[in-house]
Each structure stands twice: as C-alpha cells, then as structure tokens.
C-alpha cells in the first residue's frame, strides 16, 4: 500500500509542482526548458502498459496545456514521448529482463541507466515539441539545438533531484 502511494506520489508531484510553480521554467533565452511534469512520466512504473502510458501522458500534457494556454503542444509532445517509452525501456533492459519490483529510479536502476533513458526520452519529447513550436523549416536547426541543450541540462537536473530525494536504504 505504501509503495503504491509512493509510486503515485512520484508521478503526480512533479506535475503539480510544474503546473503551480514552474510553468515558465525556461532559461538562457529558451535554450533550457525544464518540463518538470516529464519527470513524473519518466517515473511511471516499468510494468505500465503502453495504453496506460499514453493515457497518463495525454492527461499530463493536457493539464500543462490548460495551465499554460499552449493548446495541445504539450499533450502532443507527451503522447509522442509515451509512445517511445516501451521501445526505449526494451532497448535498455538488462539481459534477463526487468524484475517485477524494478522501478525507473536512480536508486533502483543506477545513475547510468536512468541518465541514458532520461536523455533519450527527453530528446524525443523536446525534438517533437520544439519542432512543432518552430513551425517553419528555417527555424528547425534552432529547434534541434534547443531540444538537445534542454535534454542534456534537464537530465542533469532530474538526476540531481532524484539523488537528493532518494530514500536511504536501511541496512541490518
């Protein structure tokens, strides 16, 4: 029961924080966009069905769109990222597959696994989002640049957040 609450909390708290406080967390003239709600999506359990991922991503994106008046941009990008999630999870799976108890966190899967997964998924999300937002071919190189800088810097930030908030394992 406690684990379930923790899982829901991990997924929902970043969304709530993003909508209430960090909607416009964008730095260096837009070259670093922080989508804190994406951390919630990244922390969805590894065993989640693709349909659930799509539904949750659509809901998250929709909530951010409603709050930022961006009309569909975040929903579309989040759904795109959710579609890529199972494939990237399979790509990064250990040889013997994931355990039922595995969680997509730094403490459970390690810094390297989380960083690579986070970077790949954020790159997928940001490329789609900045590409859609650019709306013109001549702005695409700039959009790609923004997507990569945002993905790299956000991966670092998410890693830091998870490292600072992870629970210490109790040893006997």
């Amino acid at each position: 029961m406690n684990n379930q609450v923790l899982t829901y909390g991990r997924v929902l708290i970043p969304l709530v924080l993003h909508v209430l406080f960090f909607q416009h967390a964008s730095f260096a003239s837009g070259w670093w966009y922080v989508g804190l709600h994406l951390l919630g999506l990244l922390l969805m359990p590894l065993q989640s069905s693709p349909l659930l991922l799509l539904a949750v991503a659509a809901g998250f994106g929709c909530a951010v769109d409603m709050a930022t008046l961006e009309g569909g941009l975040f929903m579309s990008s989040a759904v795109f990222m959710a579609m890529a999630m199972p494939a990237i999870n399979r790509l990064l799976a250990p040889r013997e597959g994931y355990e039922v108890t595995d969680q997509p966190t730094v403490s459970a899967m390690g810094v390297q696994w989380f960083a690579i997964r986070c970077l790949l998924l954020l790159a997928v999300h940001h490329l789609w989002m900045f590409g859609l937002e650019a709306g013109r071919w001549d702005l695409i190189p700039r959009a790609i640049g923004k997507a990569f800088t945002s993905s790299i810097l956000s991966t670092g930030l998410f890693l830091l957040v998870l490292l600072l908030t992870r629970r210490q394992r109790t040893t006997r």
Binding site: L54, A58, D65, G71, G72, M75, S76, F80, L132
Partner: peptide, 12 residues
C-alpha cells in the same frame, strides 16, 4: 490522441 492534440494546437 495525437489527432486531438494537433487539432487543438493548430486550432488555438
């Protein structure tokens, strides 16, 4: 879902 989102995006 993409159809809904993109229609919303283009429309608004």
């Amino acid at each position: 879902l993409q159809g809904i989102a993109l229609t919303w995006f283009v429309g608004s």
